[in-house]
Write a protein that binds this DNA or RNA. Structure first.
Lengths: 341, 341
DNA sequence: ATCTTCAGTCGAACCGATTCGATATCGGGG
DNA sequence: CCCCGATATCGAATCGGTTCGACTGAAGAT
């Protein structure tokens, strides 16, 4: 059933039906009603594909998420949920593409085939092939995250560098002298994952400023790895009294390892870092952390994208958030660990 | 840049370019190469929308997820991830629609506008408007979950009824005489959410068979509610020694409440239920539970859907999984609770 | 030399909408 | 009575592909 069928049954031309539907030209009241009656009777809905072809836009945005296999972190889930939600509010559909670096088929279908009007890109690397490709096609896009040349794109991001630095200063203020950074996985950091690198440099800067002893450590995105990582850190660095981390998924395991080592948080050991607000609040005990408002970021990314789609010539905009650290009681004054603990 | 541009630059007709690309008719070697050279030079990719219009299929499937606002459970995330993954392997794109009951705009766009070749429906209710609508349009669909008339649709599902019954029997075998079911949220159950109802009836059946005392309780999908729920249960039912639950998100809170009540699991209190395998394993302590293979279910749903898309006349197929209970040590012999605990 | 066959290519129709210019009809003004 | 303008509607072109039937020319058969 198509617009021609409606036209025939209403005894008018296809263009009249189209105008009746869109209201872009006047249609007489009787005709309008006759057409509407037929439409209601048959339950007609215009074919979105045909409309997209003619109009040159699909009313769909692409959302590029990390590739299959890895589970999304709570923060990433927050991004996805809020992007989908914000898109829905703007009557845009969302096409999902799980794709990492090199030309993924689904990414290429989406971008090359012009299936979407714009793209929200997650988990951006300092050098990112997908950004290159998007720029080359001229398709509007917005990053949740940014490359090493942030002026040349639109993005929203969390200032991991400053935040981790703040965490370190907070710990130093409490008297901690030896602090570890627990980063995301080694592969991710090696691949140039932005937050991983920026956390490293913020951490390095702050420990230098405060003259602290420090350890950097990478950890896969799951609880077991988190536990193993902390266990190793405790064993190898007896003077360690605090951890700052950006690895959400590892946090529960980190707590567990501390508990098993007989270290109470925050009495014997302090933990802080950066996490989605929802995640930090729901950990047990709730984590003192810089609360990333994932929901807001995703919505903002969509706003920027909609703007770029409307006018691709608009200058690049960006939004760098530096949320405050919420004190929830997982950090406390430094207290030397007893040997063996 | 379109196929006409390629044709002009290669000095052939548009149809020849099309045939060169699709291989559906022979094209001479020289022409083939000339066309390919132009395509490579310009980086041409056929427009997916135009192709979809002509072919009458979009090579896209819709995935209907629970509406915005509620966070997805780990199991639901597993479904989403595996559906997206399986679709990608079949070179299908995934269009996301967060929509619950009554005519959501995004659902209507997707289904009414024929934006997809088929739909995977999550979180199905016993009576489900979306199923009605899909059936009416004739669009192929597969449910992850089923209505109260399962013969009339294709679906994959977990046999919550049997599984919860097994959990109860397992607890009864260990000597527990008073058992609570912690269900999903009251609103969800009231709305006719399938697993909620089936868990209720499986529970009721099993406690009747074993002549047990029982309590049924609903609980919102988050840790805090889980804690509150268990606290209330412990207070109101001193004889309670075990819980069976299907509420993943509440589990961490349930553990916490037990701990705070001074009850050790499994020494003083037993917990079991149904959860995504990954989730049960990663809880601390790991939960004795019927392990739902969420990844497999999603993939199977896509397989069924692909089949229905290829031949919509094919009889309905379904897959009801009843995974075994993995003993991970959160259930043990019943032991009377001391008063006040 | 004529007829067949076949490989290779072209032109046109089509998918289902939107949109522009043209046309028909009608009432009112001169 | 004729002309004008407004209103309502129509027909055709268009978006960018795919596909079918027809056409061309050269090779092979008779």
């Amino acid at each position: 059933m198509n617009i021609g069928e409606i036209a025939r049954r209403s005894g008018v031309s296809r263009s009249t039906v189209s105008y009746a539907l869109s209201g872009k030209r006047r249609v007489s009241k009787v005709t309008q009603q006759r057409i509407q009656a037929v439409i209601d009777e048959l339950g007609y809905r215009p074919n979105a594909t045909a409309r997209a072809l003619k109009e040159g836009r699909t009313r769909t945005i692409g959302l590029v998420i990390p590739p299959a296999g890895r589970r999304l972190t709570d923060m990433q889930l927050g991004f996805v949920a809020s992007v989908v939600d914000a898109a829905g509010r703007a009557d845009l559909d969302v096409l999902l593409s799980p794709s990492g670096g090199e030309h993924d088929r689904s990414f290429e279908r989406m971008v090359g085939g012009k299936r979407v009007d714009g793209v929200v890109l997650m988990e951006i690397r300092l050098e990112d092939d997908r950004v290159t490709r998007l720029r080359q096609t001229g398709l509007p896009f917005v990053g949740i995250g940014r490359t090493h040349l942030p002026e040349e794109m639109s993005w929203v991001d969390v200032d991991y560098e400053t935040l981790i630095s703040k965490c370190v200063h907070h710990l130093a203020d409490l008297g901690h002298r030896r602090i570890a950074l627990v980063n995301r996985s080694a592969e991710l950091v090696a691949a140039g994952y932005g937050p991983g690198h920026r956390a490293q440099s913020g951490f390095a800067r702050a420990v230098a400023e405060r003259g602290l002893d420090s350890v950097q450590s990478c950890c896969a995105d799951d609880a077991q790895s988190g536990a193993a990582c902390v266990e190793a850190l405790l064993g190898q660095h007896p003077g360690l009294t605090a951890i700052a981390t950006i690895n959400e998924a590892a946090m529960p395991g980190m707590y567990r390892a501390l508990e098993q080592a007989g270290l109470a948080v925050p009495r014997d050991f302090s933990v802080t870092g950066v996490a989605a607000q929802h995640w930090a609040e729901n950990l047990h005990p709730p984590l003192t952390a810089a609360d990333v408002p994932a929901d807001e970021l995703g919505a903002r990314a969509v706003e920027l994208l909609i703007q770029r789609i409307a006018d691709p010539a608009t200058p690049h905009l960006s939004l760098l958030l530096t949320p405050a650290i919420s004190l929830r009681g997982t950090t406390g004054p430094a207290r030397p660990r007893e040997p063996g603990r």
